[in-house]
Design a protein around this nucleic acid. Structure first.
Lengths: 143, 143
DNA sequence: CACTAATTGCGAAAGATTCGCACTTGCCGC
DNA sequence: GCGGCAAGTGCGAATCTTTCGCAATTAGTG
């Protein structure tokens, strides 16, 4: 699971809670803080939500995890080691489609050329509608 | 400001609060509900925050305004008549760069071709760093 | 002018995240 | 191995944003 040294090497103490939070983020992919807490509780029922929030923040500061905003819902965390991808978020059904980041390279390059903007497509989802929902007008505007 | 008929035509009652909310959204561009309320209070100090929220929702339902998620902050509303554009949101300094939607056409087309996904780039901002912040490493990770 | 339904104000509630503070515990040096 | 100290945790309260219920008000209609 979590290598004993990767936390220590970052100057962090090695607590069971912290290890479990990191392991949960890695196992879950795109998990909300709530879901991470849920997962951790399976092996450490006493963990406090505050502790989960604090550890997510701490782990993010040292670069082991990152968060993204994947839609109307809230924040979601993923391990930094996960392959980088953009997220297409269907506003009707909530489906998340993952797109390899190199499929977006020419777009981000054009933003760099045109606006000097260094795009981080992994951080915010791209909104829209998937094929299925697009063909069901009655679901429009009701995510 | 707000044409007397555009609200009535949508089947809505014409109340001073509603007119002012619509006017504020149009005047402010990318305003949070909080900011809209602030603006409305300049001419109608008694307005209640709930009323602002309800009117934003109502106005969105009839298509006069829309909301987007522009970054870590919260929701922002803009008038539907504004020219459609994507938003590049610098995570360091919070600057919003507006990009005409046709500059993104080939990207959205490729998402449609490749994933059957109908992209609405106006709804969620694109995260990244502006030129200035990109060249100031010390500001990294502290939006 | 009276009537009815839409709208507002207000206070409370709900959900998510943060904070303060006292208690606990990992880690370092001895 | 043992003690001390700062980092980390648990807990409850505070904050912030958004929503809700309900009674009072008001726009639009005839």
């Amino acid at each position: 699971m979590a290598d004993k040294h990767e936390l220590r090497d970052k100057g962090l103490r090695l607590t069971p809670q912290r290890e479990l939070v990191l392991a949960a983020v890695r196992a879950l992919e795109h998990a909300t803080p709530e879901e991470v807490a849920e997962k951790v509780k399976q092996t450490h029922p006493g963990i406090n939500l505050s502790t989960v929030y604090r550890n997510l923040e701490t782990l993010e500061n040292v670069g082991l995890v990152q968060h993204s905003h994947l839609g109307h819902g809230g924040v979601r965390y993923h391990a930094s080691t996960e392959e980088i991808h953009a997220h297409l978020n269907c506003e009707s059904c909530g489906t998340i489609i993952e797109v390899p980041i190199d499929a977006t390279a020419s777009f981000t390059q054009s933003l760099l050329d045109g606006y000097g903007f260094h795009t981080d497509l992994a951080h915010l989802a791209i909104a829209g509608r998937c094929e299925t929902c697009f063909n069901m007008p009655e679901t429009f505007n009701k995510p």
